[in-house]
């Protein structure tokens, strides 16, 4: 998740986008990213999963991912092709889950403020910069603490534990 430069169109949402609208419980018997992705944000924005393009970026206000602990939520977002989520703040379980499953997330209220749906964004995950190519403004997100960067560098928590267990 580090080192990459991502570019995509923004999808702008409000605050408290909860995990029930990210992926409704009726689909939770699935575990496959693509299958979950087909229903991503369906109860908030019914056409989202058909309109979203590979690499697009979700931009939302405070408390993104509130509610349930379902890891299906970051998986559904990855599965529909979204490359990254930028929010003013994240609910804590969603924050952990996103790091653990390798969905890049950035906390940056200023960037959220300055972004509208359809804006073209470029995100450098290495240094946390967010450029809004449509407005010409640039922002810098909060950096991850070193320990979390270690998990991210190991390709998520699975890779991190594999190393600890000496399994490769």
């Amino acid at each position: 998740m580090t080192g990459a430069v991502l570019e995509g169109n923004a999808w702008r949402y409000g605050r408290d986008v909860d995990t029930d609208v990210i992926i409704p419980a009726r689909y939770l018997t699935a575990t496959d990213e693509r299958e979950l992705g087909a229903h991503c944000l369906e109860d908030l924005d019914p056409d989202f999963s058909t309109k979203v393009m590979e690499g697009d970026i979700i931009v939302a206000e405070e408390n993104f991912g509130s509610g349930s602990s379902r890891e299906h939520a970051p998986l559904a977002i990855k599965g529909c092709g979204v490359s990254c989520v930028i929010a003013s703040s994240f609910a804590r379980i969603f924050y952990r889950n996103a790091i653990n499953v390798g969905l890049p997330i950035l906390e940056c209220p200023e960037a959220v403020e300055g972004t509208r749906t359809g804006d073209r964004l470029r995100v450098d995950l290495e240094n946390g910069t967010i450029e809004n190519l449509s407005t010409g403004n640039a922002y810098r997100a909060q950096p991850f603490p070193p320990f979390m960067r270690e998990i991210i560098a190991a390709g998520g928590l699975v890779g991190y534990v594999r190393r600890r267990l000496g399994a490769g």
């Binding site: 509610g67 349930s68 602990s69 379980i93 952990r96 889950n97 653990n100 928590l157 699975v158 534990v161």
Partner: peptide
Amino acid sequence: DSHTCTYGALGAFSTGMGSTDLAMAMAL
């Protein structure tokens, strides 16, 4: 499960996490 925080009523520290975190807890 996010409602794991229930057990705090008994003076325990308890918190919800995702499945991969739980896998780490089961393994280590």
